[in-house]
Write a protein that binds this DNA or RNA. Structure first.
Lengths: 223, 223
DNA sequence: ACGGCTTGGTGACTTAGTTACATACATTAC
DNA sequence: GTAATGTATGTAACTAAGTCACCAAGCCGT
């Protein structure tokens, strides 16, 4: 890896900014950079993991799939985030318990499993990075449990719409199917609830796009 | 801590069996043993954590509570297990994202947060222990998500009954309310499903106790 | 025996998930 | 342009799950 590549990567990965010199040296020697196109499945459920991918750009969605074709998002991560379930696998030799898929084309640094393990033992900054990622993921998934166990679907849908609108804060470009996978329910349920929202004048539906008419009123639906 | 105490603890905590001598020394100097009676709430949601409890006996249940009084179990742990959400808190200075409560009276070793942090940096065996716990919890919670997002309540109930019967493998001593909290649903739902099972001749209901009549047939309900 | 508490039962209603289609729009093939 | 195909959405009917309101039976202490 070139010196300028390392500089660029350091900008994007905070833990490298105050990392040990030795870690930086080994980093530029042992890690390779790779572009991963949108749609690529990084890990399948049950895979044994041989490396950890840490993102420099793009985003990855980690989700569970049920037999009936339904899905639910566990969490997603972007630049600076890593597919840490892989690390957890490496630690206790287990298999990957979910599916990880690139959503927006990603640039990632790929760290082989044995290197990762070695670094955990030798470098404080890397240790903090890995433990921080694991703890964050645990918190994310616990939040997901809370959502699906206790909150109503209309409230979750309202929140999702508001969180995923564009800058102009009026439009959401997606399909009912994708929202359903996001929230872990069936497409029909989403279609029904969206229709209800439209009846109440909160939103306006068209193919592949939802226009938010009354964001304030939609906010009230959140709880 | 006495030498014989340490020996006893080593028997119960596998990671101490091939631990560094120095870790064992500091362990017996810095850690205290404590009995915690059943019903004690070890951590409340939002608590800042100052120590990690690792169990020698007994069991702890970690759960989320919703506003409406409902609960759902995230995971539980017994001897050798630790309340690792606390460790995750210590790492990134966050708050405890759930409630942890002692179910069966527990004997625990209490490790102060600063000691825990120090050990993570210095001892391989302790590092493995902490990472292993975190990874295990993550896997547990992901399993919980899968359960509530995709499986039907009657299947989950059947599985729970079979998993929680006594040695004689016929009786489960609990209340409908407790099962509901376990599975993250309402008491009425559990009562209704149990009644259905009774109608089908699978179980026999009485106050505070459920007798399993036809375990094989109940097993079929699991999926 | 009385009163209060815990546990379980039940009906009516709302919300969510499933099944099975029908319809509308968009893209490509001809 | 029109047909064919695939994707996206609409909807009705039904089952499963969650909520609300209340009642009844068992249990415990005085």
């Amino acid at each position: 890896m070139e010196q300028e590549d390392l500089k660029r990567i350091q900008m994007k990965l905070p833990f490298l900014q105050d990392a040990e010199d030795k870690l930086l040296q080994e980093f530029s020697r042992l890690v390779r950079i790779q572009m991963i196109p949108a749609g690529t499945t990084v890990f399948w459920e049950g895979d044994v993991c041989h490396s950890l991918a840490v993102l420099l750009s793009g985003s990855v969605r980690v989700f569970k799939a049920g037999e009936n074709g339904r899905e639910i998002t566990l969490y997603r991560f972007g630049p600076g985030g890593g597919c840490i379930l892989t690390a957890s696998c490496i630690m206790n030799d287990g298999n990957f318990p979910a599916i990880a898929q690139v959503e927006e084309e990603a640039e990632a640094v790929i760290i082989p499993a044995n290197v990762l393990r070695d670094w955990v033992n030798r470098f404080y900054s890397w240790r903090q990075f890995v433990l921080g990622l694991l703890a964050q993921r645990l918190a994310d998934v616990i939040t997901t449990v809370e959502e699906i166990a206790f909150r109503r679907m209309d409230a979750r849908l309202a929140e999702w719409l508001l969180a995923n609108r564009t800058q102009e804060s009026r439009f959401v470009q997606t399909t009912h199917h994708k929202i359903a996978e996001e929230l872990g329910t069936a497409r029909e349920v989403i279609s029904r609830l969206l229709k209800d929202f439209e009846m109440e004048g909160l939103i306006l539906l068209s193919r592949g796009e939802i226009e938010i008419h009354a964001p304030e009123k939609l906010k009230l639906k959140m709880k």
